[in-house]
Structure formats: structure tokens, C-alpha cells
Design a protein around this nucleic acid. Structure first.
Lengths: 339, 339
DNA sequence: CTGAAAGCGCTTACAG
DNA sequence: CTGAAAGCGCTTACAG
């Protein structure tokens, strides 16, 4: 134990703690300390394996150099990747990241905000849950730096990083139509969150423009009942409606279970059923069928979110930027990009 | 901004900060403060939305109630799940978790230890990288609480949580042999890390016992060249050796790419080739072939690791426990357990 | 019994 | 110019 402090170094070298602090922080402008003395201090610090106490530093300067990250579910590969890139970027800028989970519960989100707040994080990057807007509003009111990522609330003046969900969905459906599909179903989460609504709206608009829209083709799935409800929804689509030709999955979890179900029912993709998914799943690598999917620029999303947040932290000025990134339509054939 | 401090509450209520601290920490034994006053303090604290400053608290009491988690790769689902369960358990015990990545680099591991140290974490849970033993030894020498997870170093007196890799591998090979395989290949990471060596040893021992061992059947793959080397290794196995009947994959990343390659080559599983994998991949859900795999008890691993660590932190006494958990052989048919 | 004061490890404004 | 001292927000040992 017995961690070395600035005081220990000061005693050893025979100077004040102030001198040590100045030198070690490179704040020794105009060579106030003297070349040889500052060298001696640096030397001794290394020799004693000095590591600054960030708690003390944070307390004193009022910043912790820590970012609080609140995810909806770290064991979802999409979010795990996001976490990875956020961390890499944060580290580059000298910030540590504390990652927490909400499991899509807004109560848990409130709790996590409190936990992170009491850890004095300098700012938040949040994948908000449904009905989580009031907690975000709280943070904004208290002038805490916040960046929402993946999801956002249109009525809040919060910086956000997301993709163009509406047009991504549009393009997916248009592609299916070009391939000759007329009866196209959609599986989407049952949520008021805007990003999901946008994906749905993209689907609906295109379907309407082609006079093919039918509300029964949109299946909304509750987050907690995925394993049960996705297969049921698929069966409904296939039984009730006249010959389904394509299904659009609004998330990777939906597509994972949904495609499995299609296979179980003996349908071949794309011969018997065309599909397009939002986000990739590892599982896609395993099908001989090539499954087209909408790729989100995860590394860039993470990078931009950190940049936006750090900007807010440093400038201490309010700034609300909504960054919308573009998606790409991918095929497993191009998968070399993924690994 | 303007965070509320204990001082603010003290001023409002008209008592000393000490009184506020005692009450809010429930340390008011023998009712030193007086029932009605302590109620008033609690009231005011809630009213002012007081959140304790953990930085200050940590500085004072010498503990941060933070655990440092060092993973090899958070974007690997196995580790992401591990992180998830470690976090859930840590939270239950009042600890926050700072997650960092090494990407299998021991230099990065050293850096992350320093970063976490300067954040005054109370202890470490580490998935160590190859050649990372000296940094672990450093931590032990400095009496820092440490628990290794998934991987371990037999020559270090560090607490560890891992599975019985040797016997898990043995059982896998024995099962393949019972199914009639004679020529069984193995894909394994090229590393000196004990857990991987144990998996290899399990394979080798069983093969020798059945007089079927041939060094050419073991393919060691470098971590950085997976995408290239796994397909090559598979081709080698299939071309050079006489009729391969089974392949044992030592990790999920190896199996992901390996099985894909088998499929690309037009082989059916299990008719043309039997496989068994260490760990599951989402991808397994997608094959009609049922792919048997060795399931590690990830939730329990995370839980036990946190318990072991917290014990070390609280008792301040050295304790070195090696916890070895048992694996289960699973089939996708039983996958309901996974979701 | 209880209030005032010291001190955790830092940084920086300020007196000399 | 530079050294000594204050103070960040807490907790707790200690004087009265």
C-alpha cells in the first residue's frame, strides 16, 4: 500500500509541495523552479513510482476527468461496440469512463445518474430509455454536460448523436420494392422513442407512396417479451396476410430471433422471403443466405459523442448540437469491413 | 451546477457539518443528535437534492468504492457479458466499476493499471494478457486487492476465478470419440496463457490415450491474424490429413470464423464434420445444424469474482483463493437458457 | 455528551 | 519572484 504523495517527494527533495505540483503538472512557466531542481523532482517522482491521486486533484479543481456512460444494455453487441469506441476516444482525451446499465428501465436510469453524479463525473453520454426524458431535462437544467447517443428526444435541447433513421428505413424498403416485393412486413419495438418511430415512419411513408400500406403489416414487439412475441408476430404475418414477400427488422435483436424463426419454418432467404435488418448480428456470418443490413457508423458515433461532450465540458457554455450520421447498406459479402 | 454540500445543509438547519455527516451516514449511534433534529436534517437534505461527493469522501476515508475492471476486449460478447454481471454484482455491494480494455496488449495493461490506480480504485478484476504476470506481481507486492478472471497465472499467489478448462476439453474430445470420430483437429490461440494451454492439454491427453494424437492436428493461431489464419488452418487440416472427422475450437472467435469456413467449403455439420466449441456465439442460433458448445457459467464467474474482491478489500488481509467453476456441454436445442 | 478542528492529497491565489 | 497557507467536501478523533 503506502501510496506515495506529493508531500513525500517534497520532503525527499527538500522543496515545498507547491513546487512539486507545479513541476509535475508542467505549470512551471517562465522556469520559476529552476532547470536542475525541476529535473531532480521529476527524477524522484519516477524513482518513487509516484502516481497522482485523482480523487484529491478532482476535489480541488472541481473536475474528475471522468465521463459517465449510461447504456441500455451492455451485453447487446451494438452497445458493447459503442462503449468500446467511446472509451478509446475518451482515453485519448484524458478521460476515464464509468459504464453503467439501465436494462431499458427509466427508474434504473435515474439511479445511475445519481450514482454517476455522486462520483462527480464531468459529463454524461447516455443511451436514454423510454420516459427517461424528464431525467435528461433535470440534467440540462442543472447545466450538466450531456450528450445523447443512438436515441434522442426532439423536445429537449440536448446534444445528440444519431443516424438518419428515417431515410435509412426508407432506402431499405425502396430496395425491397425494387427487388419486386409488394407485401412487406415490419417488426419494430413498441416504444415511443423517436429513433424507433423514425424507422417506422420511413417504412410507412414508402409503403403509402406505393399504395401498399396496411397497418396489420407492422408488428410492434414489447422489449421484455422478445423471445415469445417475435415468433408469434412472424407467424401472424405469414398466416394472415396474403403471401408475404419481405420483412424489415428494426433492430438486431428483432432480426436475430425473427430470422431464426423464418428458418425454423423452412423458409429460405432470400428465395422465399427477403429481409433487411437494422444493424448487423454475428449470426449473419453463418447463413449461406446473404442478409443485407443497415450499418451504423459505430466508431464515428462514439468518437463524435466524446468530442461533443468534451467540448461542452471545457467551454462550460451551453451548446446543443444534433449530429446526424449516415448509414450504409451492407451485405455479408462485404463483411471483411467488420472484423 | 452549484452542487449542494454538507455545509449548505448545516447552514440551513443551523448545526455543524459534523452533525449532518453523522446523520446522513446513519452513524448517529446512541441518538447523539436527537430524533427531531436528525429528521430535520434528513428532510432538508432531500429537499435540497443533496448528493454526497464521493471524491471527497473517498479522499477522506481512503477508499473510493470503485472497482477497476480490465478486460482483454469488451467487444467480444463473452467479455461483455462478464462485464455486465460483474457490474450488477458490484452495484449490489455499493461499488462502481470502471471498465477498461487492453486489446490483448500487455503494455496497454500496464497503462490501464496506472490509470485505475490514480483513480484510487479499491481493487482490480483483471482478464490478464499474455506476459502480463509481472504487472500482476507488482500489484500483489503492493498489497492491492486483485482477482484474476477467466485467465490466471499458476506461479502467482493471486486469487482467480476460472473454469476447469482441462476437463472441459477432455469431455468435449471424449464425446466426439464416442460419436465415432478418430481424426480430430483442434484450433487454439497461440499463447502461453494457462487457460489455453489447459484446453490444449485436455485435447492432447485424450487423443494420446486413444493413440490418435498427431501434432499436425493442432493448429495454433495468432490473435492478430484470425481472419486470415483460421481459414488457412482449416484448409490445411482438410487437405493434408487423412479424412478429418471433427474439429475442436478453443474459443468462440476461432469457432465463428472456422465454422463459416467449413460452410464455405460446402461441408455440412455434423454430417460431414463434427465440431465442438468453447463458448457460444450468437451465430450458432442461425445454423440448422445444432452446434454443441461448452458453456461457461458467466453470471456466476462475475458474481464470485466480485465477492472475492470485496472480501479482500474489506478484510485487508491477504487471501489467495483459486475458484474453479464447472462448465456444461450445451446444444443449441437447449438454447432457451441463453436468452 | 458534543462542538470545533484537523486532515485526506492536491492546486493556486496571495502575502511577503 | 516565491514560499506558505488556504481550501475543495468530506469524516472522525479529540478537547472541552
Amino acid at each position: 500500500m503506502a501510496r506515495v504523495s506529493i508531500k513525500d517527494i517534497a520532503r525527499e527533495v527538500g522543496v515545498s509541495t507547491a513546487a512539486v505540483s507545479l513541476v509535475l503538472n508542467g505549470k512551471d512557466e517562465n522556469g520559476r523552479i529552476g532547470k536542475e531542481m525541476s529535473e531532480k523532482i521529476r527524477q524522484k517522482a519516477k524513482e518513487m513510482h509516484y502516481e497522482p491521486n485523482n480523487l484529491a486533484r478532482g476535489l480541488r479543481i472541481g473536475r474528475s476527468n471522468t465521463i459517465g456512460l449510461i447504456l441500455a444494455d451492455i451485453s447487446n453487441l451494438f452497445f458493447a461496440n459503442l462503449a468500446f469506441h467511446i472509451q478509446e476516444q475518451a482515453e485519448k482525451q484524458g478521460y476515464s469512463v464509468i459504464i453503467t446499465n439501465t436494462n431499458e428501465s427509466d427508474l434504473k436510469m435515474e439511479k445511475m445518474i445519481n450514482v454517476l453524479n455522486s462520483r462527480q463525473v464531468d459529463g454524461f453520454i447516455i443511451v436514454p430509455t423510454e420516459h427517461g426524458d424528464r431525467y435528461i431535462a433535470d440534467l440540462l437544467k442543472r447545466r450538466m454536460p450531456v450528450v445523447l447517443i443512438d436515441r434522442f428526444f426532439p423536445h429537449l435541447r440536448a446534444s445528440s448523436v444519431a443516424v438518419d433513421n428515417y431515410n435509412a428505413a426508407r432506402k431499405a424498403i425502396e430496395k425491397m420494392i425494387r427487388q419486386g416485393c409488394r407485401n412487406i412486413g415490419m417488426l419494430v419495438y413498441q416504444t415511443e422513442l423517436q429513433h424507433m418511430q423514425d424507422r417506422k415512419r420511413g417504412y410507412i411513408d414508402v409503403m403509402k407512396e406505393h399504395h401498399m400500406f396496411n397497418p396489420a403489416l407492422v408488428k410492434e414487439i414489447g422489449y421484455s417479451f422478445l423471445t415469445n412475441d417475435v415468433p408469434i408476430a412472424i407467424e401472424h404475418l405469414l398466416l394472415k396476410e396474403n403471401r408475404m414477400e419481405g420483412i424489415f427488422f428494426a433492430t438486431n435483436t428483432l432480426s436475430m430471433i425473427g430470422i431464426k424463426q423464418l428458418m425454423n419454418m423452412g423458409l429460405r432467404i432470400p428465395e422465399d422471403m427477403k429481409v433487411i435488418c437494422f444493424d448487423k448480428s454475428d449470426a449473419f456470418d453463418f447463413t449461406e443466405a446473404s442478409i443485407p443490413y443497415i450499418q451504423q457508423p459505430v466508431p464515428e458515433m462514439g468518437k463524435v459523442a466524446v468530442e461533443l461532450l468534451v467540448e461542452q465540458i471545457k467551454q462550460k457554455q451551453e451548446s446543443c448540437q444534433f449530429i446526424e450520421l449516415q448509414t450504409r447498406m451492407m451485405n455479408i459479402a462485404e463483411k471483411s469491413i467488420i472484423f
